[in-house]
Nucleic acid binder design. Sequence first.
DNA 1: CAGTTCAGCAAGCAGTC
DNA 2: ATGACGACTGCTTGCTGAACTG
Length: 734
Amino acid sequence: PGKAVVATGDVHFLDPHEEILRTILKHGIGWREAFEGPCYFRTTEEMLQEFRFLPPEVARQIVIENPNRIAERIEKVQPVPNKLFAPKLEGAEEQVREMTWRRAKEIYGDPLPELVQKRIEKELNAIIGNGYAVVYYISHLLVKKSHELGYLVGSRGSVGSSFVAWCMGITEVNALPPHYVCPDCHYVEWFADGSVGSGYDLPDKPCPRCGREQLMKEGQDIPFETFMGFKGDKVPDIDLNFSGEVQAKVQQYSIELLGGPSQVFKAGTVGTIAEKTAYGMVRTWAEETGRRLREAEVDRLARGLTGVKRTTGQHPGGMVVVPVGVEVEEVTPVQYPADDKESGWRTTHFDYHSFENALLKLDILGHDDPTMLRMLQDLTAEHPVPEHLRKGLRFLPDGRLDVTSIPMNDEKVLALFRPGEGARVLGLKEGQVEYDLGSIAIPEMGTGFVRRMLCETMPRTFSDLVRISGLSHGTDVWTNNAQELIRKGICTLQTVIPTRDDIMLRLMYWGIEPAMAFKIMESVRKGKGLTPEMEETMRAAGVPDWYIWSCKQIKYMFPKAHAAAYVLSALRIAWFKVYMPTLFYAAYFTVRAAGALDADLLVKGEAAVRAYMEQIKQKGKDASPKEKEALVEYEVVLEALLRGIRFLPVDLWRSDAVRYTIEGEKTLRCPFISLPGLGEAAARAIVQAREEAPFQSVEDLRNRARLNKTVMELLQAHGCLKGLPEGNQLSFAL
DNA sequence: CAGTTCAGCAAGCAGTC
DNA sequence: ATGACGACTGCTTGCTGAACTG
Ligand SMILES: Nc1nc2c(ncn2[C@H]2C[C@H](O)[C@@H](COP(=O)(O)OP(=O)(O)OP(=O)(O)O)O2)c(=O)[nH]1
Ligand SMILES: [Mg+2]
Ligand SMILES: [Zn+2]
């Protein structure tokens, strides 16, 4: 028998009145003249009407009967299964157990203190029982890989709540209660009564048992359940921060380790028309078709366009693992990002959150801190840490500072985050920098918002900074929430909700069932507020009104592990800002400020920089995003200048392609890339050509580095070509 | 030699942690 | 100055100048 004919409506929108949206869309992507019938979703009656030129029984057949026959033959399908496909790898469970117990005993002794023993047992049960052994083990290998490449890995995310993760080197955050521990004789001293917020805040002291000069201090006091819940009712990922210089390599390595390109994929993303594009499209359409629309009509049409799929892309770091023996298509189709076969990556067709309960993800993210710390560490080879600062620090065999030995309780470093003292620590006079604070250019601590918070809260310790880190991230965590509670005298910095763990723990303390406390924490941290049942439970338990209100305000909230990890990394960087400023600014301008600076302005010095900043400030909110970014970076430049740092112009013979290099005391040489318009490719080409042979002439430079007219003019204007003959004398000789 | 394609650069935007 | 979550990756677009093509 022949194939069934089925009538379809070529549906692109639901109702006829939405046709205008499709018209605007087609206009927006330049699909101007193509003819289309009105493609709304027709009712059965309308479909029959469309086919009235056929005999009625034929029309009924193709509109009603055939479609139903096909539909009946399709069994019930669930596109994405809701069971977890946990990855498998021979020996992974044993590796996790072995590495954890070995490392724990190495530090805490054998037999282990009961607290440690119990914690590991609980965690291993959950980790292995829920199928996480493989991703723990692989994460360990990824960290190892990065270390081999010479880059530290930044800790990130909720996995820092896992002490097993600490034992395996997946996180530097130690989730145990604050404690001293002697790695030599295994003396341990716990502070489990809440008297100390963080092990890093304990005063330094020698081992009372064996006399070791300095005890280890650890413990951020974090419950494991923030990571995995109580009954495996949460499928978390493992997050790691890698330097951008190795991120792609590590992602590739994860594919290799977990079964190859048939089992590991980058998570895909779906790019849609969002607000700005929608408004742009509506306005352009109105303009080009000579319509004048009321604002309300523009709003209405723009809202109608948002959410329409435009392209596909790559997740910033998520590598999704399909167990060997399972086909990825059981969970999601696979594709290329933006359908680009040359991309080098294959991505999941569905986005991560649509299958997060089915497949595990390793989030191999990029972060500037590891890049900064690598550069700073490297710079200590040529610019060694001065003698008077070396006490308590460790050094690598080649003499570079081991940045992981930087202390977390250095008074001067902590003073950066308090107004007045911050500026003094930097050697600045009162009023020279805003709020007399030292936190600009310290990651996540230097924005205007955080600086004002610092002024109000005056942190003294690592644990204060962890609270501030939590409070300064997420909408309505500080403003319209904790800040008000503190101002009204209802709370202090020590009693507001700083991180999501605090919610679960305090609700349990108030007598709420762990499972419910966990559910409330998850709901609140995702900005979903409280269901009536949750609120009811809280009131019944006697949770104060302000606490319930505070929970409802929160739109997003860090886990404590993440806050601790970020403060740890920030303080390492801050140590350089205090003690080795030239190195610090060299690394900062290289890594963080790359695109925003202009060597022409840098070399002109303070007055010119101030004038430029003033110019941008005048523009207020009319300043472009680029200018706003520049304002941020030039504030750091200004601080550097005030601390006596000088900038030397780009020099054809001395400049690096992309790095600010140190040329003598407090002096930075601008890199080629600091000339706007001269990009990374050109910068690297110049340096490569220079290394092959000295430039004979302007022409020689242009030919060998394959520079275009624009770049040559830039170099000329900046004075880089001074003293270089125009033509190539050798070529004249020929 | 005009027209087309391509690489490099920057900006705008979106998505995600 | 306001009020403010911060920081990251990647896709598209527009522009420029140079290389390629017929
Ligand atoms: N500032 C800021 N940081 C975020 C945001 N979303 C995520 N992060 C940071 C903090 C998170 O702990 C970290 C990892 O993100 P994840 O999506 O993996 O969440 P997290 O690990 O906290 O919980 P999980 O157990 O994986 O569900 O990235 C955000 O909206 N703002
Ligand atoms: Mg996570
Ligand atoms: Zn000891």
